[in-house]
């Protein structure tokens, strides 16, 4: 008899918590957004458009390569710094890192709305760690900007 043992799958927001838990200095900012997942992800998944407006200090982001879920992008901060970000993007999930930057965004349907979560900051190279400066403030700003765009 094929016994249907219970299984559980972690939604992207829970996955973001799991990863951030292993990165010293990382903070996850999480919120319920009163808009359906599709609408929220239309914005957050638009790397060259709304994504840059939601993530603080990101003036411009240009995708230079995409292969399946893998993405490579050039980013320029409002202060002129440049970064080559590499990572994975799929519905509800975006995880990008450069040598000095980390950006993590997750979203999952929650009732008629959406639960979103942000993490990231300035990386300490060769360590799973972020410089814990402004990580909470930037997460809150991302939520505010996303809500304003909706």
């Amino acid at each position: 008899m094929n016994e249907p043992w219970p299984i559980t799958d972690l939604d992207p927001v829970r996955r973001l918590h799991a990863l951030a838990g292993g990165i010293r200095g990382a903070h996850v900012t999480e919120a319920h957004i009163d808009a359906p997942f599709e609408r929220v992800w239309d914005l957050l998944g638009d790397l060259e458009g709304a994504f840059g407006q939601v993530v603080p200090d990101m003036e411009r982001l240009r995708v230079v390569r995409r292969q399946g879920e893998r993405v490579e992008a050039l980013a320029r901060s409002r202060y002129g710094m440049r970064a080559r970000l590499r990572g994975v993007q799929r519905p509800g999930w975006c995880w990008l890192q450069s040598r000095f930057l980390l950006l993590g965004v997750a979203a999952a349907p929650e009732g008629p709305g959406t639960r979103v979560a942000f993490t990231g900051g300035v990386r300490l190279p060769t360590h799973a760690a972020l410089i814990p400066l402004g990580v909470r403030r930037e997460g809150s700003r991302s939520i505010q900007r996303l809500t304003a765009l909706l």
């Binding site: 996955r15 990863l19 994975v88 995880w95 890192q97 980390l102 990386r123 190279p125 799973a128 760690a129």
Partner: peptide, 12 residues
């Protein structure tokens, strides 16, 4: 283990 968070995400 060397701190590559992309590898962590893939491992996840």
């Amino acid at each position: 283990q060397r701190g590559d968070t992309l590898a962590m995400a893939e491992l996840l």
